[in-house]
């Protein structure tokens, strides 16, 4: 799966780097001074790299925690995201990462001790609970076998009761959750789109039914579970498809085990969209009923409103209002 590994010189002797390298004895290992030398140069093709991405092992020396956009939370008032990993195992055509990053290589920041330190410090700054979202720049669990991220951070958060962790994922492999006693301040947030839409836009992603089974299993183990219906993608039979999706989710998860549901339309900065359109010129999704508003590409205003309202109504027929959170686009 990983044929090439780039290793920052400063972490050559780091035990975690050595442990990861030992799991890929056949990989070609190349040194670099800083991950950005490999990851950032212009003139790379995300689509070609996605066929065989390399792993870059690095130390995050920049900002470790970032504020999330207002309205993107799920109930907390202090919200942050952090990234142990840049890029994703999966290949979803709607994903903004394709437009944001110049490279499809996986960058794994191995200095978890530094992330933990700043998370602890930030949590202790306030009596208000702090939320930490780990799946903004990657899937939180898809590369667990390489990163060991959740295996390391779940025990850490279990001892920080005033800090909440969201693990956002499309993975169906939840072995790491089986190895840990469930605790309250973590939400396993599963991203879903209706099956017919997923088949057209989500590549290398486990089938919907296996992800629903994984969600059911996580809940049965005692973990709090979230649904992330984001991005909402327009399609024919829109209402029917989303209704079927919500029914099958609810069928497999007693409502009392549902922590939160977030809903957001397909949207992204127009610069990202432009790059994605250039990378995948034959992608029908990008020729959809989209428009540019206030620097963002999104569905036409009325269409977006209609699709979000439809989903909201369908959800509110099934879940309590207080569980639903709308990720409002900054688009006017």
């Amino acid at each position: 799966m990983i044929n090439s590994i780039y290793l920052e010189n400063s972490i050559r002797e780091h035990p975690k780097a050595r442990s990861i390298l030992s799991r890929f004895p056949k990989a070609n290992v190349l040194p670099c001074e800083h991950y950005k030398e490999v990851f950032n140069p212009a003139g790379q093709n995300f689509r070609l790299q996605k066929k065989n991405p390399a792993l870059i092992l690095a130390k995050q020396t920049g900002k470790l925690l970032h504020s999330i956009p207002p309205s993107y939370g799920v109930g907390g008032s202090r919200n942050f995201y952090f990234s142990h990993l840049l890029n994703c195992l999966y290949d979803c055509r709607y994903c903004f990462l394709q437009g944001m990053y110049p490279s499809a290589h996986f960058v794994h920041f191995i200095n978890s001790e530094d992330f933990m330190s700043v998370i602890k410090q930030t949590t202790e700054e306030s009596e208000e609970p702090s939320w930490f979202f780990s799946g903004y720049d990657c899937d939180s669990l898809a590369l667990e076998s390489i990163t060991g991220f959740a295996g390391e951070f779940l025990p850490f958060f279990s001892k920080l009761p005033n800090a909440w962790l969201e693990l956002r994922t499309k993975s169906a492999n939840l072995q790491v959750l089986e190895n840990q006693t469930p605790f309250d301040n973590v939400v396993i947030a599963f991203s879903f789109t209706p099956e017919e839409i997923g088949k057209q836009t989500e590549w290398k992603v486990p089938p919907l039914d296996s992800r629903i089974r994984a969600m059911k299993k996580a809940a049965s183990m005692g973990w709090k579970v979230g649904w992330r219906i984001d991005p909402v993608i327009d399609s024919t039979d829109f209402k029917k498809r989303y209704e079927e999706l919500f029914d099958s989710l609810l069928c497999n998860l007693p409502i009392q085990q549902l922590h939160s549901v977030s809903l957001g339309a397909f949207r992204m900065p127009s610069g990202f969209f432009k790059k994605m359109e250039k990378t995948y010129p034959s992608e029908p999704l990008f020729a959809g009923k989209l428009e540019k508003r206030a620097g963002m590409m999104a569905y036409e205003k009325n269409l977006e409103k209609d699709r979000l309202t439809t989903c909201e109504n369908l959800l509110l027929q099934r879940i309590p209002k207080e569980l639903l959170f709308s990720c409002k686009s900054p688009v006017v």
Binding site: N28, Q49, N52, A54, S103
Partner: peptide, 13 residues
């Protein structure tokens, strides 16, 4: 750092 997208037995150096 030429990105290596070709699967091959040829060593990378």
């Amino acid at each position: 750092y030429p990105p290596q997208i070709i699967t091959s037995e040829v060593p990378v150096s």
